[in-house]
């Protein structure tokens, strides 16, 4: 019964397609709605472009995603306490034995540090307070619920 088969196929693919649309819409909106997230300042927004312009992601990660030559930067600002922004700015402006000095100008350094501060407030990585369930999932402090 090839006719039936074709209808079945359409039904299966149709369902999949519709679920894909709904799922995507959910991911674009409510699924990633994090009410606690800070507003991005203009400075931070420029900093985001600086981060991309120098391709910092080749060596660094946010939330563990990126290149592995350098450390994760999600919480680099709070890592150094009150001096966070100054320390980060020094790293970026001067480089170290392992991190190259990429030649950012002072405004760029300031902007990218503002961006790192913004990222710092979006969550904690790696999670410090979490709970592993018996079926293998992880609940962590930043979870929206």
């Amino acid at each position: 019964m090839p006719g039936d088969q074709r209808i079945n196929n359409r039904l299966v693919f149709g369902t999949l397609f519709v679920s894909f649309i709904f799922y995507s819409a959910y991911v674009y909106t409510a699924g990633t709605e994090a009410a606690h997230l800070p507003q991005m300042s203009e400075e931070a927004s420029r900093g985001q472009h600086v981060f991309q312009k120098y391709n910092c992601v080749a060596c660094h990660q946010f939330y563990g995603l990126g290149g592995y030559m350098g450390p994760d930067l999600t919480n680099v600002i709070s890592k150094y306490g009150a001096a966070g922004e100054t320390v980060a700015a020094t790293f970026i402006a001067s480089g170290t034995a392992t991190m190259p000095n990429l030649g950012l100008d002072p405004t760029e350094v300031q902007d990218v540090v503002a961006y790192l501060s913004f990222v710092n407030q979006t969550g904690t990585y790696p999670p410090k307070n979490y709970e592993v369930t018996w079926y293998g999932t992880v609940r962590q402090e930043d979870d929206p619920q």
Partner: peptide, 11 residues
């Protein structure tokens, strides 16, 4: 790929 990014648990 993004288990540790705080999105909705459902996802």
């Amino acid at each position: 790929h993004t288990y540790l990014v705080p999105s909705q648990t459902w996802i």
